[in-house]
Amino acid sequence: MNGVVALYEAHQAAFVIALLGLITLATRAGGYLVLARFKRIPARLEAALEAVPVAVISTLVVPPAFSGGVAEFATVAFAVVACMRLPSMVVILAGLGLIVGLRMVGL
């Protein structure tokens, strides 16, 4: 038992990754195994399910923007606006260029 605990502690991140792999697989199988049995679901439930990714990802965008200085905030703001026009790969590369530049000038 102690050996198992020691193994886990030494490789915690690797075990967490394995767990996340299982969770991802479960959601990918779950729709077929569970949701497909229901031909129709309540509109409010569907709206709530659909909202989940947007709701979660929203919480990951803004707190880091406030965590640093002007450069960090400006880069996130740029990325949000630029996405309306540019493909995401371009936005990411431009965003990285922007933050490097802004930090260089001391912002």
Binding site: L60, A65, T75, A79, V80, C83, L96
Partner: peptide
């Protein structure tokens, strides 16, 4: 190379995709 700031920019693009 701004690699420490890939995450927030990535999440911003994902968010705006919706």
């Amino acid at each position: 190379f701004g690699l420490d700031f890939i995450l927030p920019v990535y999440f911003a693009t994902i968010l705006m995709g919706f």
